[in-house]
């Protein structure tokens, strides 16, 4: 590192540091601002008088006796029953992740260990489905689901999300299984295992890093989904993101907009935690397609 060719002249240092700091500000500030503001009342967060009020919160202080208030959260979680949406989201994400990974590991393993004929078609399908707006598929679901009377329920949505996510899951897991040497399961088969036993005894114990990375992306898909959940779930089964959108319709009245702000912040916090713990896996997952593809 003390290589003379790598010490940078001052102006370049200044420029790079400022680029990084500006970007850091652009990326982080909106969220920090909104989080801070979610503990204020509307009169402060959307202050007509002075934007600085959103930081100090004089109106909040006047109304609630302290510059911070949980009014928005109370309104959203209790009055508007956001907690139901949170529970629904939890159910949907947990099941989507578990089912996606179960199907995906089996299929991804088979793809990785078969000739490359199937793999090509899978790649093509994964590409096309990834490009296809989910809402186009949704317009195909609605009518049949109404007919079959399965519209509006959580299990339907879970299966749809699993299926939509499947090409991507298969692709990621298949690339991951390719990086596990074939020798491992072949050794197991020679040692006396069937293909399935080899998968269970030799592959499952070593596949967790790839499964966790893929699982993170399944989680994000299910957690963040708006299109499918907003169209396929009935009102009482709504998950968080469509619920936030539903709030917006009813926020014209004074004060209600803070419910939406509180709900948005509530939806962001789990992602903060997720990134905090799994930053490395997320980055490696994002770049996996680029490096291996």
């Amino acid at each position: 590192m003390s290589n003379p060719a790598e010490t940078k002249p001052l102006p370049i240092k200044v420029i790079t540091i400022s680029v990084v700091l500006i970007w850091l500000f652009l990326a982080a500030f909106p969220f920090l601002w909104t989080m801070w503001g979610s503990f204020k009342v509307e009169g402060d967060f959307f202050s007509r008088a002075n934007w600085f009020n959103a930081i100090t919160g004089p109106v909040t202080e006047r109304q609630h006796g302290s510059p911070f208030t949980l009014a928005g959260y109370e309104g959203a979680w209790i009055e508007q029953e956001f907690w139901k949406a949170v529970i629904n989201t939890a159910i949907v994400t947990v099941f989507v992740v578990i089912i996606s990974l179960t199907l995906g590991t089996l299929g991804g393993y088979a793809l990785a260990r078969s000739g490359f004929k199937y793999t090509f078609w899978l790649l093509m399908a994964a590409l096309v489905f990834r490009a296809m707006p989910h809402v186009t598929l949704v317009s195909g679901y609605l009518l049949p689901f109404f007919q079959l009377n399965i519209w509006g329920y959580l299990p339907t949505t879970i299966i749809v999300l699993v299926a939509i996510n499947q090409p991507f899951t298969l692709w990621m897991l298949h690339s991951f299984f390719l990086s596990i040497p074939k020798d491992l399961d072949e050794a197991a088969m020679v040692d006396g295992c069937t293909r399935f036993q080899a998968f269970r005894l030799a592959i499952i114990p070593v596949m967790w890093p790839g499964v966790i990375t893929t699982g993170l992306f399944s989680f994000l898909l299910a957690y963040n989904d708006f299109t499918v959940t907003s169209m396929l779930l009935s009102q009482e089964n709504q998950t968080m993101i469509p619920q936030i959108n539903a709030f917006l319709g009813s926020t014209q009245e004074e004060g209600k907009v803070m419910y939406a702000v509180a709900a948005v912040v509530s939806a962001i916090i789990p992602l903060f935690v997720l990134i905090l713990f799994f930053q490395r896996q997320i980055v490696s997952g994002l770049t996996a397609g680029a490096v291996k593809g």
Partner: peptide, 8 residues
């Protein structure tokens, strides 16, 4: 940086 991207 990951936040703006991962937030829906």
């Amino acid at each position: 940086s990951l936040i703006p991207m991962l937030v829906t």
